[in-house]
Write a protein that binds this DNA or RNA. Structure first.
Lengths: 226, 226
DNA sequence: ACCTGAACACCGTTCAAGT
DNA sequence: ACCTGAACACCGTTCAAGT
């Protein structure tokens, strides 16, 4: 069904413009010069064609973005599932996921709304996560919600990596926010976004353990410890 | 220091263009016609001036966006702090926060990187949250990380509200993702994004209760229940 | 001090014309 | 079938000229 297959005779000729080639060029461009550099004009330049030529193979720039996003998802490491208990594997997946999207922040709003059909690598990632959670005892009906919850936290945390280190410095209005200002001062230096992510990830995964235990049956211990 | 103060004599004259007025007009525009309608040209039109006139009062469109974001934060309901236990108040705050940013999705990447200095309403929100958590027993050094963790989850969940209902429908590649496809089918219909948010919020808050209990002292029960 | 109007350097996208 | 080149309808921003 590709245009290569529709080219049955004659010499192999020159490399042809395809959606796949456009995606690869877009990934190259983003990796080399960042997301701001990904314009239709730059993409066409990279491929040695006129900008309008691209529209014979993709219908919109957003389609290119969706293809890039699926491509980027291959970088997310799901290998911990099957090797570690589900909760540790989930945390490892979340760490890798966040790291990848911290390098591709403009794709965060894209992945949040892009259907998995037509995004094979994204689908493959979810399959590995789902299989790992099922093997860990998660019931089918809660599984997707649990994945989405972790994903929401991960993507929000990926955005947070872009915050300047002094984002919470209250400046001139410190007097009107004494409690918060003191808490900001008491916060450890260094990788603040990373510390918040680890705190939240630990809490979220612990809470999910409790959800699973409660779903498993009434004999499970009370996770609140009260 | 405002331009009104620098206008000591003469009649009150006509309403003057100020950063505050520009912000109000921007909020009006967004509320009436959505974020896509917020262009410099439309904003100038709303105010009855030439687009270039705005640059006498704000240095960039992004500054307008930051001002709108701070304004929007007033809508987030923090009233549960002081009225309810910290964990319930935190959950109520998170629900309101998500709801507001679900209506202002384009502001999500803005709030994630905007310093609180010069954002008085945002700072006031954090102060109420911080005071509520302190009263609930949270130590200063963990407080901001806990808030950031919840915020990351909230903002990710706000993005997730924009996902189409069939975002996880695997389509033609369902065969390569049987576990995930089955879990998607087993998922309840209705407000899927809402269900994932509530599952994650419950888990995150439960996990934070455990973090606090562990920080409070060695006598606290083991949250894992093992 | 602050507004206007023209201009600039971009965007993504369309489409008639070519081959 | 697919590419080029010109054009379109926008963007945000700058700046000389006015008052």
């Amino acid at each position: 069904m590709t245009s290569a297959q529709r080219r049955p005779r004659g010499r192999p000729s020159q490399p042809v413009l395809t959606a796949e080639r456009i995606t690869e060029a877009a990934v190259r461009l983003v990796e080399a010069r960042g997301h701001d550099a990904l314009t239709v004009a730059a993409l066409a330049r990279e491929l040695g064609v006129a900008p309008s030529a691209l529209y014979n193979h993709v219908s919109t720039k957003n389609e290119v973005l969706r293809r890039v996003q699926d491509h980027v998802n291959r970088e997310v490491d799901c290998s911990a599932f099957g090797r570690l208990p589900w909760d540790e594997a989930l945390a490892a997946w979340a760490r890798s996921y966040r790291e990848v999207y911290a390098r591709h922040v403009p794709l965060v709003p894209v992945i949040a709304v892009t259907p998995v059909r037509g995004a094979p690598h994204t689908l493959a990632m979810y399959e590995r996560v789902a299989a790992g959670l099922r093997a860990g005892g998660w019931p089918e009906h809660l599984l997707v919600d649990a994945v989405v919850a972790v994903e929401s936290f991960v993507l929000g945390s990926a955005l947070d990596t872009q915050a300047p280190p002094d984002i919470f410095e209250p400046g001139e209005h410190a007097g009107s926010a004494p409690t918060f200002a003191a808490a900001v001062r008491a916060r450890g230096g260094g990788d603040a976004a990373g510390a918040a992510f680890e705190l939240g990830l630990g809490a979220l995964v612990a809470g999910l353990r409790a959800v699973l235990a409660a779903a498993d049956g009434a004999g499970a211990p009370d996770p609140r410890g009260s």
